[in-house]
């Protein structure tokens, strides 16, 4: 399946683009997706421990199974307030 991935804040700068379309097998998890993203953008791998992942409007953990309709957000730690 094709998954739309959007990058935010500093991670958009590191990725060099606001979004990517990633090919992911059905049933693939966030961990699988991040592996594909790091293969395309190796500079993001060093940020792995701090990266937050959203599916739609909710945060999801690394074991979350990505759905074909999900819009995935790749985000650095939040800094509001």
């Amino acid at each position: 399946m094709k998954v739309r991935v959007q990058f935010y804040s500093q991670l958009r700068d590191v990725a060099g683009a606001p979004e990517l379309i990633v090919d992911l097998a059905e049933g693939g998890t966030v961990t699988d997706l991040l592996g594909k993203i790091y293969a395309k953008v190796p500079a993001l791998r060093s940020r792995d421990k701090s990266i937050l992942v959203g599916a739609g409007v909710e945060f999801v953990d690394r074991n979350y199974k990505v759905q074909p309709t999900d819009e995935i957000s790749i985000m650095p730690p939040v800094q509001g307030g």
């Binding site: 935010y8 500093q10 800094q79």
Partner: peptide, 24 residues
């Protein structure tokens, strides 16, 4: 809010230099 709401900030310094705030 500071833990869960996806908002980020970039300070604009007087000299015109714009850098990202270091991650937590």
């Amino acid at each position: 809010l500071k833990r869960k709401v996806p908002i980020w900030k970039r300070p604009k310094f007087r000299a015109g230099e714009r850098i990202s705030k270091p991650e937590k």
